[in-house]
Structures are given as structure tokens and as C-alpha cells.
Design a protein around this nucleic acid. Structure first.
Lengths: 231, 231
DNA sequence: CGGAGGATTGAAGGCTATCAAAGTCCGTGG
DNA sequence: CCACGGACTTTGATAGCCTTCAATCCTCCG
């Protein structure tokens, strides 16, 4: 039931490449867990005793200042790896944005297993390097882009990530999709305020670049225009 | 001469843990290279056919928009690893901030060597995870902190990183240090303009929090005040 | 129908960018 | 030794983008 063999992310997550016997022993130390939208998986500053693979759903990774300002520093989609193996504890909270299912491991168990399975460590390394690239691209956005550019870049990235994460064969970026973020959360991703996000959305709508069928839905009407705006 | 045995970062870089025979074969595929201040090591959008270990000096990792805005997305100190192994090419330029010495590898050679040496891949993984943590903390700074907070955070980070990178036994953060950045480069790290950086520096000086003996030197007079300002 | 949370819209203000000019440092050459 | 030139930095004035504060409006559910 909760076995890796039936796992939908089996050949996309870091478990890809493990043989049957290895999968069995990995299965032994992990367990499935459901997280409902809004529910935390890991608290900031807790000892991060968990690591996990995302099976289904979207989760946010956030850091906060003492006075309550929040910044979303990462978003985890199906097959993504969550948590901080190997000794250090990272100062980030993980909260589900949608109902989600994850495959969790005690960090110690995972560390030990990983060290014994270089193939898995290699997958994790590739994934971490890719995440670092994405994060650095996001630094450029946060440090140097204007609000309209941020919003355009965000919408384009969403349309790509969300079409990857469902299992349909890739038809390229999605034209229409459901945002896993509230307006406030979009603001927390982009380093803006909720009001600015809202204004930019309506401006794009009025300019005929996007449609907003409902609060959480976006349809990209004029992709070239978005690309031009993205800077 | 150019051998790993005499390398000053030998037991801090990812090569740590390799035995004599492994070091010999790693030595065979790498070579030392000097880079003078201002000289590029890797260009944005080139195929990044190199990876490298920093032996001495400080280098910046940057991305730019088409219209010339620049953001520094990472800073590499001695023993840090530079470049993007495993297939992908990352869109970042690497330029030396000070005269530097690095140990470079053709990416293909390095990839092959790494896959055959899980211990080295593990070191690289730990390093990459740590860098991702640091980068995420920096996203918070870029997205949510004010100019005074950015400057204070920056100075504190500098005083820590620069005291680590020299080989003196750790006496904690440096009270006085030499900035490897020009004012413009500080601005590119923090997502500010050069004028704002300059104004914040003089404000801190006038408030008695720091001294500025010369353009590139900083002395932290009132560390608690800086910590309070860092947010 | 009515309430609550989220989203939108509006008005005003502040922080940082932009534009512009003066000042400083440092190497070069007279 | 000093004058000169150029790059970098500092300082000042102004403008503009985004935030802040506030009110209204949806939309979903009880």
C-alpha cells in the first residue's frame, strides 16, 4: 500500500536508480504522511529531524525575521526533496500550500542510508545543484527586478513548473493553471506587498496579457508580452 | 610544485578525505591557475566547461539582465568549489575580486572522477547544501530587508567569512578587515545602488558603529549595534 | 442572509533610485 | 616634488516606485 513500488514519483525522485533490494530497505525506514493545506511539516529552528520526498502537492519553504516579515525561499513540487541532511539544521519552515502527500524519513536514518548508497547521494547532489541554480536566478529577481518584471517572471515560472509536476506528458508550459499561492504568498515569493501584487495582476488583466477566471486561476493570453515584461 | 600535497586548502576543500593514490589521479586531471583581480574565470552563458576549487583569493558569481543590471549571487572563498558539474550549464559568470589562485578541472574529467569517488561527491553534496542554505538566507535579505539592515547584515557576514578564509586559528569574527568589494560590488550583492551603499556606510560611521580607515577597510566598533540593525 | 477572510482599490507618504556635481585617492609623468 | 588625469566615492536635490494605511468589495459557507 504505502510501498515504493506503486509510488508515482518513483522514477523522478532521488529513489530512481535504486534496485529492488535497496528500495525495500529504504521503504523500511520511511513512511507516508499526508499534510493538509496550511499545515506545517517542519518548523523554522526546530532541529529538522525530518527529511522527505514530495509525492503529491506543493509546499513552501520560508524564513522569517523576528518582527514577522516572511520570505518564501523555495517551493517543493512532486519528486522534490525536502529537508537538510547531514548534521546541519537549516533555518526554514516547510508548510503545505495544497493538500500534499510526502514520504518522510528520520534524518539520521536517511543520512546513514544515503552514505551507503552513492547512487542516491548522486541524485541528491544533482537535485541540490539544480535547486541552487534556480535559487540564484531568483536572487536576481529579488535584488534587481521591478514589480512588473517580478510578476511576469513569476507567472511564466508557474506555468512551467506546474505543467511539469502533473504527470501528463510535457506539452510545454501550461496556458492555464491553478495557483497554489494566495496573493499574500505570491507577495512573499517576490518580496512585494499583497497590494502591489494585486495591482500588477489587475494591470496585466486590463492590458489583455492574462485572464483571471477566479482568484486562484490564471490564464496566459499573451505569452510573448509576458516574456517581454519579464526583463 | 603544483601538487595537491602542498595545497593550503588540502584538508578543507572537497579533496579532503581522498587517499594518496586518489590525490595523485585527481592531480593528474587538474591544474593550477592564477587569476588577477577583475579577470573572469567563467563567462555567463558559456558552456561552463570548467569547475574549480578556490585556493586563494575571493571571486564573485554574478548574473545579469540583458539591459545590464547585475546581481552577485555568490561569493567564493578559499576551499570553496566553483562551477556546475553534471550536465547542466549554469547561467553565471565568475570573476576574481582579488588576485586569486584556483585549481581547475575540465568538467568532463571532474564528472568522471567524482562518479568514481563517492567520498568526494559526498563532500561536494555537503558543501552544496550549505551553500544553498546561505543563498536562501540571502533571499530573505534581498526580498524583505531595508537598506540599513542589508548593510549591517553584510558587514557582519563579511567579518565572519573573512576571518574563516585566512588560515589563522579562528578567533571569531574579525573586528577589522579588508573588503574584497568595491562600493558598486557591495551594491550588486545587496540589490542596492552605489549611492545608497555609500550613504549607509557614512551613516554608520557618523553613528560610531564602524570606522572606515580607507576605502576598502572596515573596522567594526560597535558590534552589538550592528547586530541590532541587521534585523 | 450574514459574517469572515481574502482580494481589490484608493490616497498619501517614505525609502531608495536617479540625476548631477563635487570630492578623494592613487598612479603617472613632468 | 608636484601637477595631472581617471576611476571611484561621496554628497546633494529630486523623482518615482512601492509601501503603508484605510476602506470597500468579493466570494465562499455557515
Amino acid at each position: 500500500m504505502s510501498s515504493c513500488e506503486t509510488c508515482v514519483v518513483r522514477n523522478r525522485a532521488i529513489c530512481d536508480g535504486l534496485d529492488a533490494r535497496e528500495i525495500t530497505s529504504l521503504n523500511a525506514i520511511g513512511r507516508r504522511r499526508s499534510v493538509s493545506a496550511g499545515e506545517p511539516l517542519i518548523w523554522e529552528d526546530d532541529d529538522s529531524l525530518l527529511v522527505a520526498n514530495v509525492i503529491e502537492g506543493v509546499l513552501k519553504l520560508t524564513t522569517s525575521t523576528e518582527d514577522g516579515r516572511e520570505q518564501i525561499v523555495g517551493v517543493a513540487y512532486p519528486s522534490d526533496f525536502i529537508g537538510r541532511p547531514f548534521g546541519q539544521t537549516s533555518k526554514a519552515s516547510v508548510v503545505a500550500l495544497t493538500d500534499a502527500r510526502v514520504c518522510v524519513f528520520a534524518r539520521n536514518d536517511f543520512d546513514r542510508f544515503a552514505r551507503e548508497h552513492p547512487g542516491l547521494e548522486h541524485k541528491l547532489l544533482e537535485r541540490t545543484l539544480a535547486e541552487l541554480d534556480r535559487t540564484r536566478a531568483w536572487m536576481m529577481l529579488l535584488g534587481r527586478k521591478t514589480a512588473p518584471e517580478k510578476i511576469a517572471t513569476f507567472l511564466l515560472e508557474m506555468s512551467e513548473r506546474l505543467s511539469e509536476s502533473d504527470c501528463t506528458p510535457k506539452f510545454g508550459p501550461a496556458r492555464r493553471f491553478q495557483l497554489p499561492f494566495s496573493r499574500q504568498q505570491v507577495a512573499d515569493v517576490l518580496g512585494l506587498t499583497i497590494e502591489t501584487v494585486s495591482r500588477q495582476f489587475t494591470r496585466l488583466k486590463n492590458d489583455g496579457v492574462i485572464e483571471l477566471p477566479s482568484r486562484r486561476e490564471v490564464e496566459i493570453v499573451d505569452r510573448p508580452a509576458l516574456l517581454a515584461l519579464a526583463g
